[in-house]
């Protein structure tokens, strides 16, 4: 009797096992077949600049990026006469991606007559579901050239380590330790080497739109003039190969060594402190994959 019961139990068991193997979802079976390759986070930021400074992003090999950055501001009221803006500062920029991880760029700003250039290298990329690759790191070496009043060449160098993490699909943060060295300073009491740290963030508010903000803290500011830490809040919008950034900021210059250390206006809504920024970036693909 006991034997019979065990057998019945066995039959039922076999039937269940058999059925479950037969009916095992084909899709479930496929799920186990996917190779275990690392998945890199994409689009921590959409643009290669958060707003003022660089973001960790670079373009893929063969991409040529053409950019026009503008800042508009007004004189204080008695002198303000123009219709839209009294003053404008523009930077014309070009950058080319030599590889997926290495980009070089050049730019010229008409207001302060500074030529600048940079080399940018993606050192580490954040991976999904990998605790060891928690952040992305990009190294930027910038240099700038201007002529002083005595018509002498002056160079300045900016080294940055950009550390960013895409925290979730909408929110990304970046911390950028920065070291700036200038060949010549405004006055003898000013430090030739300065340390700064940048904080940047992005929050997506739609598929193509994000709110961005950036702040640069300078540890040893200039002594000969009053300077303020650069701050920016803005809206980034991208469609196709065109990226548009609208921002309000207190920074007037574009080269890293100037806007980080020599921003002479505090951030508020009084003229001439309020600067309206309008950046347009267009991407050309010179190397199309077949």
């Amino acid at each position: 009797m006991k034997n019979k019961k065990t057998h019945q139990l066995l039959i039922v068991l076999f039937l269940i096992v058999n059925c479950s193997i037969n009916a095992q979802d084909l899709l479930e079976k496929l799920n186990q077949e996917f190779p275990d390759t690392p998945v890199y986070e994409i689009a921590t930021f959409k643009t290669t600049r958060i707003g003022l400074g660089h973001s960790i992003e670079t373009r893929k090999k063969g991409a040529l990026q053409i950019s026009l950055y503008n800042r508009y501001w007004n004189f204080p009221t008695p002198r303000s006469e123009r219709f839209l803006a009294d003053k404008v500062s523009s930077r014309y920029g070009l950058e080319y991606a030599f590889s997926d991880n290495f980009t070089a760029g050049l730019g010229y700003t008409n207001f302060d007559e500074i030529s600048d250039g940079f080399l940018k290298y993606r050192l580490l990329k954040q991976q999904k579901n990998n605790k060891k690759r928690y952040v992305s790191i990009t190294l930027v070496q910038g240099f700038s050239h201007r002529t002083n009043l005595a018509n002498k060449d002056q160079f300045a160098f900016t080294s940055q380590a950009l550390i960013a993490r895409k925290i979730n699909r909408d929110f990304s943060l970046q911390i950028s330790p920065t070291f700036i060295h200038k060949q010549a300073t405004l006055a003898d009491i000013d430090p030739k080497s300065q340390f700064a740290i940048g904080f940047g963030g992005r929050h997506k508010i739609g598929g193509h739109t994000a709110i961005v903000s950036e702040y640069y803290y300078v540890a040893n500011p200039l002594k000969s003039i009053d300077t303020y830490n650069a701050f920016m809040v803005g809206l980034n919008w991208e469609v196709g190969d065109l990226m548009v950034q609208l921002q309000v900021t207190n920074a007037r210059n574009f080269a890293e060594d100037t806007f980080i250390t020599q921003t002479a206006h505090n951030f508020n809504f009084k003229d001439p402190n309020l600067h309206f920024g309008f950046n347009v970036t267009f991407l050309l693909h010179t190397n199309k994959k077949k």
Partner: peptide
């Protein structure tokens, strides 16, 4: 063919 398309496709 274009990398921004890849980004838009996956992200948006």
């Amino acid at each position: 063919k274009k990398d921004l398309m890849y980004e838009h496709f996956n992200e948006s």
